[in-house]
Simulated assay, not measured.
Amino acid sequence: MKTTALTGRYRRRAPGEPRAVGYLYILPALLVYAVFLLYPFGQSVWLSFLHWDGLTAATPAGFGNYRDLFGDPALRAPFAHALVLLVFYSALPVAIGLLLAAAMSRVRIHGMTFFRTVLFLPQVLALIVVAVAWRSILAPDGLLNDTLRAVGLGSLARPWLGDYTWALPAVGVIGTWVGTGLCMVLFLAGVQRVPRELYEAARMDGAGAVREFFAVTLPALRPHLAVALTLTIIAGLRNFDLIYVTTSGGPGNATSVPAYEVYHRAFETNQVGSAAAVGVALTVLIFALTVTVSRLVEGRRA
């Protein structure tokens, strides 16, 4: 069986027709992928082995740029920050989404469409718009601090995005707000496909909310869980626009992440080779984490 070029329908391969003919149908897509993804990535790998400021002649660096990733605290910190942000960008949205989906599987809520639309709205907005709005909310004279002062908690008010301790969690909260709606919608779609008889049987057996979740809901949501984790992990690790607009990696380098460090080194400090090494390492990290998540889910399903 193979797909025809015009209709997209499957037809049986004619006797004697070489299998190589089938690969011709995916060749255009493969060429586009190679030109716009594989070739630029290959160039980045090549640049990562050079010392280059973007203007003068480049000199070989060997593995020096990669050794700096482990030996230079200024390069290790962005990766540590990215792993911390994964708690806010991936773990919390997935946990909250699972909790909401589990609750809605037991209780019928009126206005479900409106509720899902409101929670999914951050996914529709451009992240630049989200970053500008939250920068205003978290400003020293912003809505959050004004609310704290109004309810008598003025001692908790602070410049959230300018505080060395709270800047990274503040940016993480924005990521949680953005990602929760996506996870909830994914899990709700999965819950709606679970036969209601399974829930009724669990309740007849005396299963409470917790047991029902682990016995019925969670096993049915494993494929959706893999998708949610993959999307949120990628979003958390490639985070650039939120950091750029809200903190620009500050205060100091308290919120610097690998994607921002690539921009900073390539265009502000003219360390193109080092920036390329950070980008390649980030790509490898994203690939390793997403493959690990997929393998874990497949192992559970097997």
Rank of each mutant, 00 (worst) to 15 (best):
R265N: 13
E268V: 06
I234A: 11
F88V: 04
I128V: 15
D53Q: 01
L125H: 05
L37S: 10
A5P: 07
A80W: 07
E197A: 13
A202C: 08
V278R: 00
L31G: 08
T59R: 14
T247I: 13
R106W: 03
L188M: 15
L285C: 07
W134E: 10
D72G: 07
T255E: 00
T180E: 02
G249E: 11
F41A: 12
G249Q: 07
F41G: 08
H264S: 14
A254W: 00
L231M: 04
V227S: 02
F79R: 01
A235C: 09
H51A: 11
G236K: 00
A228F: 07
T246Y: 01
T3R: 14
D53S: 04
R300E: 12
G236W: 06
A288G: 07
P122W: 03
G208S: 04
Y89C: 09
S274M: 14
A103G: 11
A209D: 06
A226C: 14
Y10P: 05
D241Q: 09
G172D: 07
T232V: 06
S136R: 02
F63M: 13
N253W: 07
P73C: 05
L38Y: 04
T56N: 14
P15A: 09
R149I: 11
A254F: 02
V35D: 04
C183T: 06
L242V: 13
F267S: 03
G236V: 02
V194W: 01
G208E: 08
R116W: 09
S105T: 01
A126T: 00
G8R: 06
A259E: 05
F70K: 00
K2F: 13
A170C: 07
P18K: 08
T290S: 11
L30C: 12
L121S: 09
R295C: 09
A157Q: 07
A226G: 14
D146H: 12
G8A: 13
V130M: 03
W160S: 05
A91Q: 02
A202M: 05
F63N: 06
